[in-house]
């Protein structure tokens, strides 16, 4: 059974339907990808999952329990953590303080020691920036800091919103390895990403969202082969194969 599920979620902004009866599941121990063109509703879905947005209809289940009406902080304490597409760091605090604060906020029931903030920074390669104010970090480093901060709450489910944008190819490769490690440790990861190389490399399962509707799902190879996906992305069924890496973030971002 999926650790995190949403069932028939619909979200409206005024007359605009941002999500229409979306159902998906995120399983522990692997990376699940969520892709789709700009404005498809990916970030909206994250907001619904984390409780920042209450859906007009539908349910969110964590470990089989209905958490749809639960406040964001309660969901976090049950093991959900996320990063933000537009950085939401605590800018006046240092990188280390950002992570340290998060370790103190982590769910109360979790057994074991508090994670070591220094070690977390090390894990994402930010040790050298521990004492820098977070708002002085460039975007790429800020994204890694958000990841460290999310890991600091010892989540069971990790939601990553475009974590690789602003990173160079080497950094992205290192990041892919890190994702693999985390999944092996048993985390359920939902990854929103425009960098198809990364998505194809790390994801075990993919969902494709387009104009708020779930259009396709399956393992990466079958999604890549799906003509409707190509059409949604490229406007035509001919063109660059989204999986070859020649069509990078720029193409997919339309």
């Amino acid at each position: 059974m999926a650790l995190l599920e949403i069932r028939d979620v619909t979200v409206r902004y005024g007359g605009h339907v941002a999500l229409r009866e979306v159902t998906l599941g995120v399983e522990a121990g692997r990376v699940t990808g969520l892709i789709g063109p700009n404005g498809a509703g990916k970030t909206t879905l994250f907001n619904v999952l984390t409780g920042l947005l209450t859906p007009g209809a539908g349910r969110v289940l964590l470990d089989g329990e209905d958490v749809t009406r639960l406040a964001p902080y309660r969901r976090a304490r049950r093991g959900m953590a996320r990063t933000f597409q537009i950085l939401e760091l605590f800018g006046q605090l240092t990188a280390l303080e950002n992570v340290a604060l998060a370790t103190r906020l982590r769910r109360r029931t979790a057994a074991g020691e508090r994670p070591d903030p220094g070690a977390l920074l090390e894990r994402v390669g930010l040790s050298a920036f521990a004492d820098r104010r977070a708002d002085t970090l460039p975007t790429g480093l800020g994204r890694r800091l958000e990841l460290a901060r999310a890991l600091a709450v010892r989540p069971r489910v990790l939601l990553l919103d475009e974590p690789a944008s602003g990173q160079d190819p080497d950094e992205t490769a290192a990041f892919a390895d890190l994702l693999g490690e985390l999944a092996d440790e048993g985390l359920a990861i939902l990854l929103v990403e425009h960098d198809m190389t990364l998505v194809m490399r790390v994801c075990a399962h993919l969902y494709v969202l387009d104009f708020g509707t779930l259009m396709a799902e399956g393992d990466p190879a079958s999604v890549r082969a799906d003509p409707r996906v190509r059409e949604a992305y490229l406007g035509t069924s001919t063109g660059t194969d989204p999986g070859t890496g020649t069509a990078g973030a720029g193409t997919l971002a339309r």
Binding site: Y73, R75, A76, A81, E88, L89, F90, L93, L101, R104
Partner: peptide
């Protein structure tokens, strides 16, 4: 102390603070 960092977090981004488990 910790409260001070929480306060800064509430000012800077209540959304992020809450998704990390803080009761804002």
């Amino acid at each position: 102390g910790e409260l001070g960092q929480r306060l800064i977090a509430v000012k800077e981004s209540p959304a992020a603070a809450a998704t990390l488990g803080m009761n804002v």
